[in-house]
Amino acid sequence: MLHIINKSPLSNGALDSCLRVAESGEILLIEDAVYAATKGSALEGKMKEAMDKLKVLVLLPDLEARGLADRIIEGVATVDYGGFVDLVASNKNCQSWL
């Protein structure tokens, strides 16, 4: 399934909770969650670990808006809104971790 996260992992537990229960599938980082996709943050190790079991993607327009498009962790894929739509369509179901 597709897990959609929209909160900064540095100030909210949504990403942590998702990573705790999800054993497979895809995670899309949007809005303030895009900070989880950046190199050099305290989260980088955790994200790399998560990428062993889950595919991690980030919504590029949100990352660009926040000035961090040049710092994506290697292996994190980028999508635009069309790619977001494709992800929802290709997964059987999705959950927004609000």
Partner: peptide, 25 residues
């Protein structure tokens, strides 16, 4: 679930809908 301007939710939803329609959904 969120009002306009206070939170990005409505913006993201709008851009998602537009992209979905452009793809023929």
């Amino acid at each position: 679930n969120e009002g306009p301007y206070q939170h990005q939710a409505s913006d993201t939803a709008y851009l998602f809908c537009k992209a979905a329609l452009e793809k023929g959904h």
